[in-house]
């Protein structure tokens, strides 16, 4: 079997006395669509932050694409091909939509070995991305002129602009209507079909079930289930964790 794209071993993180992550093991293979769920405060966001380098893990290690990435800063992990979107969209507020996408193109896509994008190519890719997520008409607008769902799309498009091997989408659908959720799921599947591995962290079960090929459940910083979505949601321990709280 080929080496997994992402391999998390015995990952641990504490905040003061609070154990946020307690020995997490997780592996993700190339091309997979993984769903990650868990109640509030179960450590999902901390796990994302530790994988992406926003926080540094205390124990264990993260291997990505054949290399240990522990201790690397967030931007270095992005350069290696790991991109994320944020739970609350964090656009660059003084830059237009197109310029927001330009940033990862200039700083990540353009710095990979053997790539040099001309200004024209960068503009072309910006247009392609705004087209892909349906923001072409708003390319010159500032983020504050966008609706909630457009903001989410910008967030995803910006992560995509880094041309990642692995995309980690942190609650990309919170606060959206049912049809908007459908749009985003469709978009994510479209991206996956282009060969991007995706981890989706989500509360909305319908979205997770329709998206994921595999489902992982975190509770109180521990992984309690990992398997096919249908098996996982029928797992008594998972049901207990969700209903019992």
């Amino acid at each position: 079997m080929a080496e997994p794209l992402l391999q998390v071993d015995n990952l641990g993180k504490r905040f003061g006395g609070f154990v946020a992550l307690d020995g997490i093991n997780l592996s993700v293979t190339q091309g997979e669509r993984l769903g990650l769920i868990g109640p509030n405060g179960s450590g999902k966001s901390t796990l994302v932050n530790c994988m992406c380098g926003t926080l540094q893990n205390e124990t264990g290690s993260v291997r990505f694409d054949g290399h240990v990435v522990d201790g690397l800063a967030a931007h270095q992990r992005t350069h290696r091909g790991m991109a994320r979107s944020f739970q609350l969209p964090r656009p660059f507020t003084t830059l237009s939509v197109a310029e927001n996408l330009r940033v990862p193109l200039l700083y990540t896509a353009n710095t990979r070995r053997g790539t040099h994008l001309s200004p024209a190519e960068i503009t072309a890719r910006c247009e392609e991305l705004t087209g892909l997520v349906g923001l072409a008409a708003k390319a010159d607008k500032l983020p504050r002129d966008l609706t909630q769902v457009e903001m989410r799309k910008l967030e995803l498009a910006r992560a995509m602009a880094a041309e990642p091997k692995l995309l980690i989408a942190d609650e990309a659908m919170a606060g959206l209507s049912q049809s908007e959720v459908g749009d985003i799921v469709e978009l994510l599947i479209k991206l996956n079909e282009r060969g991007v591995t995706i981890i989706l962290i989500e509360h909305i079960m319908r979205a997770v079930m329709s998206f994921s090929q595999r489902l992982v459940v975190l509770v109180s910083g521990k992984k309690i289930a990992d398997g096919k979505p249908d098996d996982v949601v029928n797992n008594p321990e998972v049901i207990g964790a969700y209903l019992g709280q």
């Binding site: 992406c52 967030a74 992005t78």
Partner: peptide
């Protein structure tokens, strides 16, 4: 934070 995530 977002800048770092974009590779800056």
């Amino acid at each position: 934070l977002a800048a770092e995530a974009c590779g800056v």
